[in-house]
Simulated assay, not measured.
Amino acid sequence: MKKITIIDVATQAGVSKSTVSQYLNGRFGHMSANTKIKIEAAIKELNYVPNPIARSLKVEKTKTIGVVVRDITGYNTSRVMRGIDDYCKKHHYNIMIYNSDFDADAEKRALLALQHMCVDGIIMTSSGLNSALIQQFIQQGMPIVQFQLEYPDCPSNIVLSDYRDSAYEATEHLIQMGHQRICFVAQAFSNSLSRQARFDGYAHAMHKHGLPVTDDAILYWDRETGFAQDPTHLLQQPLAPSAFFTQHLAITADLLQAFNAAHIAIPQQASIIGFDEIPMVDLFRVPISVIRQDAYKIGIETSKLLIESMTGQHKEWQRVIVPCELVLRDSVQRIG
């Protein structure tokens, strides 16, 4: 079977080869609607599939964007990816996805693979352990946009949720409901500015109302080992927390499992607000109040910023903040 070429498409559409080339490369701002329709029809009729690698040798662009995420099956990450995919398709870019599985070495291999495949730009959630490599890529001219997590040693274009203000709003709500001993449940901050921003919002609300923020009010959680101490034991202390503010969907899930196993009633014995929406939350016996990130918009804004950067629209780093929404349900009880 003869391989269909760009010349065949041009002949079928009755236009020049260069016109088809401009269409395939997204340069059709001044092209008439009729010409675009004829080219689209010819591509469909001939079942023409452009060769992005061959085209890249000529125009030095592959029309491909690399995406590195920690786990595409995550509830929020999957929605971010939907936004990225929708925006990139609309602007005639393909995406290539790698999962790092929370492993810095896997993340490094993914970045190097994308570089070798000559992608036009990269979107990623960084582990914070490959900052030197990311900075090297940027210095070599690779457009990169990060999202979700920010690190002080890895400046770049970035899209984030409004972590600080959202954490402040959630903590303020708990205080207004009468809670004074609020346990902040989180991963170790390490050098993550995003995790620190959530704690800063929590601490600001506590200090505003003259409430202490002590080390024993922070319960750390690890993805591999779980809670640093059993959260049900905290409820047995003389100054037990009356509310828990969790900072990740996985943390909220583990906390709910621990309370359920110990027959802790929510919200009668412990109120909860979680960061991140929970799948099928309406089916819960006690639906959990959450800070809902606009994951789809994060995906849209991230890919938009990357494409703008690839076309030279920004001379300085751009920092896009996407607002969150506090969704109140039945997991917080008024006390006092």
Rank of each mutant, 00 (worst) to 15 (best):
residue 89 K to R: 12
residue 122 I to A: 01
residue 135 Q to G: 10
residue 107 E to T: 01
residue 108 K to T: 10
residue 123 I to K: 02
residue 96 M to H: 10
residue 106 A to L: 15
residue 89 K to W: 08
residue 107 E to N: 00
residue 93 Y to D: 04
residue 135 Q to M: 09
residue 95 I to T: 12
residue 130 N to W: 09
residue 132 A to N: 10
residue 129 L to E: 15
residue 133 L to Y: 14
residue 97 I to R: 01
residue 128 G to R: 11
residue 113 A to R: 10
residue 95 I to W: 03
residue 136 Q to A: 13
residue 94 N to T: 04
residue 115 Q to Y: 15
residue 106 A to I: 07
residue 88 C to F: 02
residue 136 Q to E: 15
residue 90 K to I: 01
residue 121 G to W: 05
residue 86 D to R: 06
residue 107 E to Q: 06
residue 90 K to C: 03
residue 89 K to D: 09
residue 137 F to C: 14
residue 99 N to A: 00
residue 133 L to P: 11
residue 85 D to S: 13
residue 113 A to K: 08
residue 130 N to T: 06
residue 125 T to V: 15
residue 123 I to D: 11
residue 110 A to M: 05
residue 93 Y to I: 06
residue 95 I to C: 08
residue 92 H to W: 08
residue 98 Y to Q: 03
residue 108 K to Y: 07
residue 120 D to I: 03
residue 110 A to L: 04
residue 130 N to A: 07
residue 104 A to F: 08
residue 86 D to F: 08
residue 103 D to Y: 06
residue 138 I to R: 13
residue 98 Y to T: 03
residue 101 D to G: 00
residue 110 A to D: 08
residue 99 N to I: 04
residue 110 A to Q: 11
residue 115 Q to E: 14
residue 127 S to T: 15
residue 95 I to L: 08
residue 114 L to T: 07
residue 130 N to E: 07
residue 99 N to H: 05
residue 132 A to K: 11
